[in-house]
Amino acid sequence: MNVMNLSFSEAFGERWNIHQCRSMLTLPKAALQIAYHLDTPCGFTISRAVADEMELLMIAVTPSYQNHGIGRLLLRSLLENAELGQINKIFLEVRSNNPAQNLYKKMGFEKSGIRKSYYTGLDKVKYDAITYTKIIIT
């Protein structure tokens, strides 16, 4: 939860609480992946597979570890596990002004849709949600 709290700004309401995390992780084929530096958690992913598709529900890297390859390492591991699990597609959704989009594009995700005004910041400004898809097995 420390990584969650440090990684997500309260300005957008994207941070999950402990109850939401526990609830999600009790669902079938939900997975938590944690990255460590020495003994300190510094990043994680939460994903869920259904049939031959997976959704990356959340990825976070503690700000002091951002831009050090942790996010790329987490995504690469997620993609490898998806392939081993015979997942055909991975989906994710991201706020339109989130710089993480650059990482998703570098990792082969392609923009596949938009949800207009999906996110609302504390300042009441609306932000679109951009959906990305990556084909794993063709």
Rank of each mutant, 00 (worst) to 15 (best):
M4V: 04
N5L: 02
L6K: 13
S7N: 02
F8N: 05
F8G: 07
F12T: 02
F12C: 09
E14V: 01
R15V: 02
W16T: 06
I18A: 14
H19Q: 14
Q20I: 06
C21R: 09
S23V: 00
M24Q: 14
M24T: 10
L25I: 03
L25W: 07
L25V: 08
P28Y: 01
P28K: 05
L32R: 11
Q33M: 14
Q33R: 13
I34L: 11
A35P: 06
Y36E: 09
L38N: 15
D39L: 03
P41N: 09
G43C: 04
T45Q: 06
I46T: 05
V50R: 07
L56Q: 10
M58C: 13
M58R: 12
I59P: 06
G69D: 05
G69P: 05
G71L: 00
R72M: 01
L73S: 13
L75H: 04
S77I: 01
E80K: 11
N81V: 00
E83G: 11
G85R: 14
I87G: 06
N88K: 13
I90W: 01
I90P: 09
I90M: 07
F91V: 09
V94K: 01
N97F: 08
N97P: 03
N98R: 00
P99M: 01
A100C: 10
Q101C: 09
L103P: 05
Y104D: 10
K105H: 07
K105D: 07
K105I: 10
K106H: 12
K106F: 04
M107Y: 05
G108N: 03
E110Y: 00
E110P: 01
K111H: 11
S112D: 14
Y118I: 04
Y119K: 08
Y119V: 03
K126A: 12
Y127T: 04
Y127K: 05
Y127W: 10
A129S: 12
I130M: 03
Y132N: 10
K134C: 03
I135T: 14
I135R: 13
I136Q: 05
T138N: 15
